[in-house]
Amino acid sequence: MEQVLEISRLSKKFGSRWVVRDVSFSVNAGEVFGFLGPNGAGKTTVIKMIMGFLTPDAGRIQINGFDNIRQYEKAMERIGGIVENPEMYKEFSGRQNLVMYARLHGKTAAARIDEVVRLVGMEQRIGEKLRKYSLGMKQRVGVAQALLHRPNVLILDEPTNGLDPAGVRDLRDILKRLAHEQGVAVLVSSHMLAEMELMCDRVGIIENGVLRGVMDIGALLREAGGEEVYRYEIDDVPKALALLGEVWGGSIRSSDNRSVVLALPRAQVPAVSRLLAAEVGLLGLAPQQKSLEDAFIQITGGGNVIA
């Protein structure tokens, strides 16, 4: 598959502290790549280096085969994105902002502007001044701006910030469609794991400036050991916990006064169910989706990271 964004051995330090260290990964055409990490892990720093805000102290970035230092304009020609929050000119309307941005790309077709505005669902209020927009609306205009010049690499830093649930779903759909139907390479950063799970084909996990690993979602889920998670609703939880500890010895994920959550291979489910039904009164059984969060915690060693 074509690698449109290639990052190799990228490093950056602020003062004497390395905030990004030896990060290498690549994003292929037609995939949504999740860039995952806790706050302060270096996600935005990497994105700012890709977008030309910061100069790397080491390493190189290639976009569509162009070096983003030496062939800056060519490299940036087909990249679109949002860095942190979309900041535009507050005293201008959304449309005026888009027109000015389009001009910098040498592309000012009004029809295309209408098209992206429709795509992000802003056609009603695009004529209003930006200072009247909510964060979510600015985010939508930011996405419209990022898409305006039909980039083949799209970089979105925390794009769901401030969006309502419907907005998040819409954005997800837009990104998936762009990637899977139009072959755009999408890089999305986030610290929201559930979102990544639904959106991305692959994720790279960064922590303390170091890339811990890159894997596709399916592999990531398997990484956790192929177990599945089930919620058993039972009458007498303490008794059930004691029993499970004594007889079964498997992993108890959590419990409350009505249920216990167990991670176990599918093959063991009938046996455990029979045991609980016989001894403590089984009221119900529900499979829990195995989440990326679990895998994430597992990879990063758990703890301090989740926002």
């Binding site: 304009e73 940036m76 990249i79 860095v83 941005y101 910098l104």
Partner: peptide, 14 residues
């Protein structure tokens, strides 16, 4: 100060 410089920097202009 206002951050609007971002929309200039992300454009393909040196």
């Amino acid at each position: 100060s206002t951050g609007s410089i971002k929309s200039l920097i992300i454009a393909p202009v040196r």
